[in-house]
Design a binder for these strands. Sequence first.
DNA 1: GTTTTTGCAAATGATTTGCATGGAT
DNA 2: ATCCATGCAAATCATTTGCAAAAAC
Lengths: 142, 142
Amino acid sequence: MRTTTDERLSATLRDAGHRVTSQRLVLYRVLEELGRHASAEEIARVSSERLPGLSLPTVYATLELFESLGLARRVDAGGPAALFDPRTDPHAHFACRRCGTVSDLDAAVDSSAAERVARATGAEPDHVEVLLRGLCADCRAS
Amino acid sequence: MRTTTDERLSATLRDAGHRVTSQRLVLYRVLEELGRHASAEEIARVSSERLPGLSLPTVYATLELFESLGLARRVDAGGPAALFDPRTDPHAHFACRRCGTVSDLDAAVDSSAAERVARATGAEPDHVEVLLRGLCADCRAS
DNA sequence: GTTTTTGCAAATGATTTGCATGGAT
DNA sequence: ATCCATGCAAATCATTTGCAAAAAC
């Protein structure tokens, strides 16, 4: 539902005092349609087809904005480029040491003990990132 | 025990078919003495005092070697520079969104479900990295 | 009209690479 | 003597920054 998606983003932006721009709408649509983590460069490439002239700095600024609004997560999976994930529900990632591929792991991870320890130091954690590393099926075969 | 540390590294290197060099010995000592995660640049700075002329490319190559030998862990905590951690026992990290400080969290995290899901795909995970993000005590105050 | 956002170009900064020399085996 | 490891310089590449023009409010 393209319209609904646009409206949801518009409302979120306005509520936070930000402006609604075509760049933000397109980037949010692309992120949602991808449905999976992608690098800024990949997101920019797809989005540029719909909005020629879109620049990388804008993509980075917008994705950072989305993260601050809770609309996306930035995931550092060890590769050179960071990934941006439209899934905001807690889930783990698996990154292959050999080929670098990153995949979702739909499994619960109990980090409550770690959160408790963090809070005991006076910190306020708002997010948990769980990353498993190793060899993926394809790389194990070769 | 400096001698013991050196011998442990020497044995590990030889077993894996690598050579024992003064750079590797110094870097391993520094890493152990620090006892906490540090950036390559920081490790290089400290190590250079003991081994003038030590180059950054060597530091990176050596830390990567240590990781492949299971002597250190590379941790991507979101900041621009990766961290290298001499602690190889499982533990979580907390990274402050504001100031970027990374601290250890000594708490157990049960990731067995995620590991099981990963193995079900044919992958072979060998490591789990748990990163909590939020505001540290100092940054919450200001 | 005013303020935010964008695009461009350039800067930054971590990490890697190519290659000749030095060092470990 | 052989081959691996190092240092240097330069390349690479993701990400950020400064600033003038364009767009949203």
